[in-house]
Simulated scan of single mutants.
Amino acid sequence: MTHQVDMAGARRRRPVKTIATITLILASLAILLALGTWQMERLYWKEGLLADIAERRSADPVPLADIERLAASGGDMEYRRVALSGTFDHTKERHFFATFQGQTGFYVYTPLILSDGRAILVNRGFIPYEMKEVSTRTAGEVAGEQRLTGYARSRLAQKPSSIVPDNDIAKNIFFWKDLDVMASSIGLDPAKTLPFFVDVDDLVQ
């Protein structure tokens, strides 16, 4: 009798287990479908972003004033080509730690002093770690007024991640591009410093 009762109980529990299994499978499929949809949407977004960047980088440069107006209005100015002119102050370089083509070094940010006395930090390019000192690369310290084109780059509102080291102001090594600190550490007037960067594309002269 006990055996018969146990068998009957097992038969009653079997549909419950089957329903639970089916529910689990359906839930798993729903999660996988959702992840697949998210990944596809992210892929389309990334492809669209890359296409947009490529289009902007191939466009004719616009005057600096146009980028200023765009920045002031909160518009998207990232990677828009810009034409500007001024004189580099090489005594106030800021060095952003990075790697380029497998080599460790720095991107050199130099204030470009505009004709109206304002300044903008310009990324002039990458140098190997052993060339951090200006004395090792004097040939690249162009003098006089320069006309150049480049890409507008937005400032960062905060450190991008908690794992990023703090900037070492004393050693002039920046691990993230804190525009305010980069500018203040070399004595630039905040009221006369443009609130974005420019990555140099070409020196016109």
Rank of each mutant, 00 (worst) to 15 (best):
R13L: 13
T193W: 13
P165F: 09
L64H: 02
G102N: 14
M7W: 15
L43P: 00
K46F: 08
Y151N: 06
W45R: 14
T149K: 10
D52R: 15
T91C: 02
T104F: 08
L35H: 06
E141D: 15
F126Q: 08
F197V: 01
S73A: 14
G48T: 03
A27H: 09
R42T: 06
L33V: 07
E78I: 11
I186V: 11
H95I: 08
D189M: 10
P61D: 11
N167W: 13
E133K: 09
A191E: 12
Q103W: 03
E47D: 15
W45V: 04
A157D: 04
F175N: 04
R57T: 02
V82H: 05
T104K: 12
A83Y: 03
D76A: 00
I67L: 05
F96R: 02
R124H: 03
D60K: 03
L33D: 05
R69E: 15
E55T: 08
M182E: 09
N172D: 07
L29N: 12
E141S: 14
L203E: 07
R137D: 09
R118Q: 15
R118C: 08
A139C: 01
I173S: 04
T37E: 04
K132E: 00
S184C: 11
A183W: 01
G36T: 04
A51Y: 14
D178W: 10
I22H: 08
F88Y: 09
H95G: 02
R11D: 05
L49W: 15
A143H: 13
R56W: 11
D76M: 01
A10W: 06
Y79A: 05
F196I: 02
G75N: 06
A191F: 12
T2I: 08
T87V: 04
M182D: 03
L203M: 09
K17P: 00
Q39D: 11
G117R: 08
L84H: 01
D189I: 07
T136W: 06
G144A: 10
E68C: 04
K177E: 13
P61L: 04
A183V: 01
I127E: 00
A119G: 00
L114I: 10
L156W: 07
F96M: 04
G75F: 09
L203I: 09
A30I: 06
P111R: 09
I53G: 01
I25H: 06
T2K: 12
T21V: 11
R94K: 13
P15G: 09
D60T: 01
A51H: 12
L156M: 05
R57H: 05
E133N: 11
